[in-house]
Computed example of a mutant assay.
Amino acid sequence: MLELRDVHSYYGNIHALKGISLSVNQGEVVTLIGANGAGKTTTLRTISGLLRPRQGQILLNGQRIDHLPPHQIAQLGVAHAPEGRRIFGRMTVRENLEMGAFKRSDRAEIQRDMERVFSLFPRLRERINQAGGTLSGGEQQMLAIGRALMSRPRILLLDEPSMGLAPVLVEQIFRIIEDINREGTTILLVEQNALMALGVAHRGYVLQTGEIVLQGDAASLEQNEMVQKAYLGME
C-alpha cells in the first residue's frame, strides 16, 4: 500500500532522513522505533507532505505522492494524527471530528463514521459539546485519532499516541489501535514505547540518525539483543 524508496529529507541544511526505504502492506500495523531525533516524526511528515523529500520516491498503491501538497495526499487516503495531538482547542469535540471529514460531502456516512468514533472512544461522546482545549491529555489523544479516522483513511499515520499519558491510558489507546486495525485500517505507528508498539505491530523498522538499521517481524525485533538493550530497557 505504501512504499518509500531511498527517501532523503532535510530541515534546511540538516540531513534528517538519509535514504529511508520501507513498505507497509494493506491491513498491517508497521511500527517505527528509535530514540529522539532518529527521524521517526520526520518520516511521517514527509509521507503526509508536510516536508518535501529532496530525493527518492513515496508511492501510495503504486502512485507517486511525494510531489503532492498535503491536502491532496490526505484526499488520497493518508490521515496523520500528529505528535502533540494538534487538535483545535476552541472548537468542540464534534467540530474537531467534523474537521476530519471536511473534504467529504456524504453527510449520512459522516454521521455513521462519527458514531464509529464514539463507539471506539465513548469518552468523546460524553464530551461532544466541550471545547477540545479543555479535555485531558488522554481525551485529546482520542480526539486526534478520531479526527484522523473521520477522513476514512486507507492508511493512518500515528505519531507518539502514548506520549504523556498515564500507563492505564496507554494500554487503552493501544487496545483501540488494535481494534482500528482489525476493522481494516492500515497503520504506520511511531512510538517511543517500543514494547507496546511491538506488541501491536506485525512488522517494524529501527531508525538511528535518519537511517534504518534493522527491520523484521515484530516478534524477531522484540527478541533482538540490540533492540532489547537500546529500546526495551533490558540488560
Rank of each mutant, 00 (worst) to 15 (best):
E225G: 01
E235Y: 05
G210H: 06
G210I: 09
E235D: 14
Q228K: 15
V206K: 02
E225S: 11
Q208I: 12
H202D: 15
N224W: 03
L221I: 08
V227P: 10
A218I: 06
V213D: 10
G216L: 08
E222C: 12
V227N: 03
A230Y: 00
Q208L: 13
R203G: 05
R203C: 08
L214M: 13
S220I: 10
G216W: 00
A201W: 00
E211D: 09
T209R: 12
V206P: 09
V213Y: 06
M226H: 11
R203E: 08
M234L: 15
M226I: 12
G233E: 08
D217C: 07
V213C: 02
E235V: 14
N224H: 11
M226S: 12
Y231N: 09
E235K: 12
K229Y: 07
V206A: 05
H202F: 02
Q228L: 09
I212Y: 03
L214V: 05
Q215W: 01
G216D: 09
Q208V: 15
R203D: 07
E222K: 15
Y205L: 03
A201I: 05
G210L: 09
L221M: 03
L232V: 02
G216F: 00
Y205C: 08
G210V: 05
L232W: 06
A201F: 00
L221A: 03
M234H: 13
A230N: 10
Q215K: 12
A219M: 10
L221H: 04
T209M: 10
N224K: 03
V213H: 07
A230S: 13
L214W: 02
E235I: 13
R203N: 12
G233T: 03
D217I: 04
Q208G: 00
Y231D: 06
G204E: 03
Y231L: 09
T209F: 10
K229A: 14
Q223F: 02
